[in-house]
Design a protein around this nucleic acid. Sequence first.
DNA 1: GATCCTTAGTGTGTGTTAGACACGAAGCCA
DNA 2: TGGCTTCGTGTCTAACACACACTAAGGATC
Lengths: 245, 245
Amino acid sequence: MSAAPLAARVDPERHGGSYAYDHPRPAVTVDCVVFGVDEEDLKILLVRRGIPPFEGRWALPGGFVREEEDLPSAARRELQEETGLEKVFLEQLYTFGDLGRDPRGRVISVAYYALVKLGDHRVRAATDAREARWFAAGDVPRLAFDHDRILATARARLQGKVRYQPIGFELLPPKFTLTQLQRVYEKILARPLDKRNFRKKLLATGLLVELDEVERGVAHRAARLYRFDRRKYEQLEKDGFMFEV
Amino acid sequence: MSAAPLAARVDPERHGGSYAYDHPRPAVTVDCVVFGVDEEDLKILLVRRGIPPFEGRWALPGGFVREEEDLPSAARRELQEETGLEKVFLEQLYTFGDLGRDPRGRVISVAYYALVKLGDHRVRAATDAREARWFAAGDVPRLAFDHDRILATARARLQGKVRYQPIGFELLPPKFTLTQLQRVYEKILARPLDKRNFRKKLLATGLLVELDEVERGVAHRAARLYRFDRRKYEQLEKDGFMFEV
DNA sequence: GATCCTTAGTGTGTGTTAGACACGAAGCCA
DNA sequence: TGGCTTCGTGTCTAACACACACTAAGGATC
């Protein structure tokens, strides 16, 4: 933290409805990369911009950080406003601050990524009649601003993270079959996994609780349902344990 | 990115020497956690604050981001100004934006961590007669702002990173012995490593080039010198290879 | 109720790797 | 010459990663 004169006044001075500072300030936004998984694909949630710049282009949901909210709150608020999503798993991704990234001026964006259980949430048409839609990960259009880069960063992070942290569960309903779980991993990692080895490894973690229930409404043998033991995970995490897919 | 009215004017309007915006803006700073390793310890570079708030307290080097510089540039500039360090390895760590973190008002800090070869660089007394000093990792005083938290985050990241990315080399001179390298790893991980296994593993990566040179000026058998093959690493990295200590 | 179709669920063998472990060689110094 | 310090090296064992295929269950269809 600098002790330079820049710091002399951090709070704004009011000038008839505007906010004045001794030195120019970048604007700060949050942008969210929202991942979901359905039967077919890894999906990403995008919104269509209703105003310039990049009017009509698809972009990550996000917006300006307000004075009285912290960063994750801003991310959650924007997600709620623009896509109707609430109570998602959310983690900070990276902060993008290149000079040319926003044609309107200096804008620094703190990017987050979110994991969503697709079945749970229905994406509401966003406010402002702006459109919100899921895109298959392999089928994302060119995005506004530097959002292509943010998305690429998020996908790399997701791939890295899924291998040693149990975030796969965040993308599934509370009760799930091992096959569903394997599908999620396969979609994120974009490669097939061996069924027996996958089950062996996941069950060996002790983080899955076998339920007295099976799948319903399928035209074949029904699979057993499991749930994720979050409490146990938090316990193991403290003791510095590792797992790897 | 939002399309809300907030975005209507991103560039400032001038009012006799100050900068005015439609909406209040947080200030944006960068803060750097600088790691070094010497014969005894993992070390962290701190500066003593010359002005309030937290006057006289130790803090991470850092300061406000300027209008015309991107985030890593700001981090490097502040490092240079406050500690004299240049050309260090620098990576973004995390962005801290809690509401109460700076008593002067809303300040969002993008934190970086840096790795320094202690032998190479001499820490200059900072400008402004502010003091800059290395502290042993186990012996850091209470810091200004939320810098304790930033430091803790950086140490956790360093521990995680060193195990699967060859950043240990960034803390050593270009030519080093395997024992020196092992010491670096042991200090970062804060646990002893087996000598034979360590050498086996590191040499197996193929990233170390054995030089025709040995250590000089030691009162015992001289150890062979090695250098890190950065080119080969970048090659292997592209092919998605892994290593682990 | 027989057949078909689809997915569930399960075990072994093999090669690789992690980790424990100790001693002779080299070089400097006194 | 002897002593001190660090260098440099190999093997064994246990655990793990990975490859691999068949029977069981259940609904759908005729």
